[in-house]
Design a binder for these strands. Sequence first.
DNA 1: AAGTGGTCTAGACCACGAC
DNA 2: TCGTGGTCTAGACCACTTA
Lengths: 243, 243
Amino acid sequence: MRVVQPKSVADQVEEILRGKIRDGTYPAGSRIPSESELSEGFGVSRATVRTVLAKLAVNGMILRKQGDGTYVNPRIRVASANFGSLWDFVTLIESNGYKPAIDALSIELRAASEKEAGALAIEPQENLLSMTRLFRADEQPVILAKNVIPASFLCVPLGDIDGHLPIRDILYKYCRQEIAFAITDIRSMLTGPELKSALGDTLGDTVLELQLAFYSRDNLPLALGVNYFNDATLRLCLAQAWS
Amino acid sequence: MRVVQPKSVADQVEEILRGKIRDGTYPAGSRIPSESELSEGFGVSRATVRTVLAKLAVNGMILRKQGDGTYVNPRIRVASANFGSLWDFVTLIESNGYKPAIDALSIELRAASEKEAGALAIEPQENLLSMTRLFRADEQPVILAKNVIPASFLCVPLGDIDGHLPIRDILYKYCRQEIAFAITDIRSMLTGPELKSALGDTLGDTVLELQLAFYSRDNLPLALGVNYFNDATLRLCLAQAWS
DNA sequence: AAGTGGTCTAGACCACGAC
DNA sequence: TCGTGGTCTAGACCACTTA
């Protein structure tokens, strides 16, 4: 069970613990080993174990009780779990119990609008990589996603881009840029005719609109996104824990 | 500047740093002192400083760059900042630049429906404390909030309840219960006539519906909430940072 | 009283960025 | 090369729960 080198020790411990919770080695609601037992078992210090447990606790995956122990949160297994999923639709679809798929409807270059240029801190009319993609849950379309990235970031030809990758991977693989933080606006809106045709007949009268902006560690705008979310089919479900 | 006893050392350091960012001692975009400087200045260990900085970083308030330094994130000041605000409408209204107010429309006891009983793990027909409240931004109604709490939790008479408190404080003051985690479902819905009358004429055709469930550290359901959110007036804006 | 998580310390070494 | 943040250790003491 002892941990070896490749990634950080803490990441490995986290991965192992997440796995044991996922596969039922630590069943829902059960008490997991104490910090001292884990640190001894993994051959790492208690401080390292603690940073990992703290990370799992803010997502609500575990519940910690002073003087008692640490328990697997049984309710979180049915929820979409952590906040990261807001920007990871594949995981979100999976946690809703569906098989995810991504269709790349269009990948093209076009000039930036005034508004896009302002948000991306570039000149209007500068070129953008513009992608329109459709996320499916068990084949049924559930999210229409439109993303734009300044074409100046691109370091591969347009044809090399794999439209099935999440935006985070596209920025990393084709632009060598890493997302440090994101700001999301959530709105509700009426379903228009073009959405009806894209998202299909199960669509209700309203959809959720998620407007995203991604930034690098240097505070540089990397990409924008507008996502239309069929909340009649897919639950947008967040969990948060305190202290 | 040295820190004294009352709360935990880490909490005090966090409060001081948040204050310096808020009041401009550390201006937006500027580099704040290094971990060693802070730890020496506060008279605490570097590990303590690091746990605080890690907490501020996940909310995107600061950006950390290895080999360089820690910077105040200038973009987060205009966003509603952290995830906590999803469940703290007063802070959310303030960060949108309005003056918040809460009207208690009704506070009463009633029997639980089948569905409520199931979600709260109580028997149907058991008594609930049911509150309907209206949040205003600069006097304009923006959120209609309905909350229910099992009456068995109450340890004060109904008349003693101050309807202007946030749900977290109501649970703590009147029920001696602390919220450990919450699960939120976000949906969009058409504006009905009763919402129109409650939320007023600026209301659009759609609203956001936030369904909340609050749980204790013992995984006991504490309260439910349904909130109708006028997203034409108020931005529901979340920020998240990675690693 | 024993065991748990909560807090904190003092120090070590590494990876990275700027100079 | 130097200073920064990133990682990790070994140990201490406290507060709390449980029995």
